[in-house]
Amino acid sequence: MSSASKQNTLVIEDLHVSVEGKEILKGVNVEIPKGEVHALMGPNGAGKSTLAYALMGHPKYRITEGKVSFHGKNLLDLSIDKRAREGVFLAFQYPKEIPGLKVFHFLKNAYIARFGIDEGSFSSMDFFKKVKAKTELLKMKEDFITRYLNEGFSGGEKKRMEILQLSLLKPEIAILDEPDSGLDIDAVRIVAGGVNSLRGPDIGVLLITHYQRILNYIKPDVVHILMNGRIVQSGGPDLAEHLDNVGYEFAGAEV
């Protein structure tokens, strides 16, 4: 690939990440171009979430080696909020509850920050309509936007809240950390439908999942298998199915 086309690719090179002095990622290499959906699979403790947090810039995840570039910049030099404004988004496996912070107020501020909108020219009413349309799509309850952010939300509501943010903030690279965990099949369909509606040439997706199930609804272009802090195998969608049949241990043994 030429360096010009890599502008629109998230390039992770030889990434080493430690948490509290313990090395979790031991040299990860992945390239996710816009327009593609990459599934990252692996057993518990492989380092899947660590990769997600490290890419977004969580202070507890220390980068000891490597580089992550996007738009010709080293993402690792940017603060968390600047990464988000660069178009990187993380849908959390366990979204945080923020007591007292109204969902609408939060969404509005995130939207303004993400797109660098001048508050004076921002129409809350138009934004409200936009949010409402999306909440209907995600089958969220009416009172949703007047509630406090994730406070007292059920697991399914929290996941939908993440997808709602995803669709409002229109990232160029979306990292989805186990968006299906803890969901029943109907909720998985809704979440997957939300993600699928965003697919297209303008977004690259890194979909982290432990199970193959969600991949029945969100078809990946590429599947990577992460074990013990390294990508041990990459391939097409059939790799996920294969994995589902043989299990991670066997996949690991193949390396």
Binding site: I80, D81, R83, L90, A113, L169
Partner: peptide, 9 residues
């Protein structure tokens, strides 16, 4: 971290 990951300073 959660709020900043949305672009909020």
């Amino acid at each position: 971290f959660y709020l900043m990951s949305r672009g909020i300073s």
